[in-house]
Design a protein around this nucleic acid. Structure first.
Lengths: 199, 199
DNA sequence: AAAAATTAATTAAACGTTTGTTTAATATTA
DNA sequence: TAATATTAAACAAACGTTTAATTAATTTTT
């Protein structure tokens, strides 16, 4: 599954053959069908695995005591950036798969993940509004699109960021550290404006 | 090429067979190799075609007389939203292709498009800073990532936006109109904050 | 505790499709 | 008459999956 994740991220799902995966994982070709059922089911299993991993954290942030709503939103941003940076391969796959409108088990999984996230964050925004921390008329969905869109776009196209900003001298590690820091500051600034600045 | 564009957007490049394209375009299978050379070259041709289309407009906005820098940025946002909304299929393909780190003609085309955009927009930002309209220390690259990331993410996953916000009753046209308006307002608000609000 | 029986894991080879592309013949246009 | 466009058929290669045989591990019986 690890080998498959890396290859799917690099060459796309349909651009990766089961033989590629078998070779990278150093297992026999037939083992993949034997253990996962099929190539499609392998991708499904990957989505289920990654989906499970990211469930619990969200709620614990939202319910954290002695924390302002804005601080919680900041924690949420940090948490999302962590996830995207630590699971770059998966988020590349995710970014590509979510574009396809075709129905299926993975499409359902993606929608469920998003639904779950949006519900929780909506609650948090409402909490902040009740406490008077946030302004009225916040479009939570669009705000999330900006967080997710900016972070995903940056991490999935960081090879372009490096090239366009003449950062070829940096190591991959240094580049990631730089991007991560900038992105966190950038998103927090934007989100604070959305949540607290009156028009 | 139109048929191919729609199919690539719907099922992905590798998920679409040359036979699919031939059938949708109602031409003989061999015609595609005859006119485009290969399936890969067909995609390249599409990228070149779409790339050419979007070159000129940018400069004309930046050089528009009697316009403040902020107004120009707003025009730029409107222009980008227009492009994304009018070429949804292509932007789905683009969004998916740019994730792949593999080198090739298309990768070069994508990088050139981005380089060209970033250079022009950097000039505009500097102009605004000289005029005192914009604050110092603006990360142009990140700002662009937010515009592009938010817009692309919204349009390429609008089927999720519809579902998550209970807009199933809206027609496709109505949904697009709604999203378009919201997105324009949203992005302009954010970008104004980035360009003019001190921290 | 050893032997036998059963289940699970692993393999190389083969399966039938589908893939992108080419060929060689025919039809159309210049 | 020559060049171009279009076609149905065929091509070899690659695809995901299955098969049948073999090896390894586990359980049951002696």
């Amino acid at each position: 599954m690890e080998a498959a994740e890396e290859l799917f991220a690099e060459k796309g799902f349909n651009g990766t053959s089961v033989r590629d995966i078998a070779e990278k994982a150093q297992v026999n070709l037939a083992m993949i069908s034997y253990y996962f059922g099929s190539k499609d089911k392998l991708l499904e299993t990957l989505f289920e695995y990654r989906g499970e991993l990211s469930k619990t954290k969200l709620v614990s942030i939202i319910e954290k005591p002695n924390t302002t709503s804005l601080e919680k939103v900041y924690l949420l941003i940090d948490n999302y950036i962590d996830k995207v940076f630590n699971q770059q391969c998966f988020y590349k796959i995710f970014t590509r798969e979510q574009v396809l409108t075709q129905t299926g088990h993975i499409a359902e999984l993606i929608l469920q993940m998003k639904k779950n996230n949006q519900e929780n964050i909506s609650r948090l925004i409402q909490e902040g509004q009740k406490k008077g921390e946030f302004k009225k008329n916040i479009d939570t969905a669009l705000m999330m699109h900006t967080i997710v869109g900016t972070a995903n776009h940056l991490i999935t196209t960081k090879h372009h960021y490096r090239e366009l900003n003449n950062l070829q001298s940096l190591s991959e590690e240094e580049l990631l550290k730089l991007i991560r820091k900038k992105l966190a500051t950038h998103l927090k600034f934007i989100i604070k404006a959305i949540l607290t600045h009156e028009v």
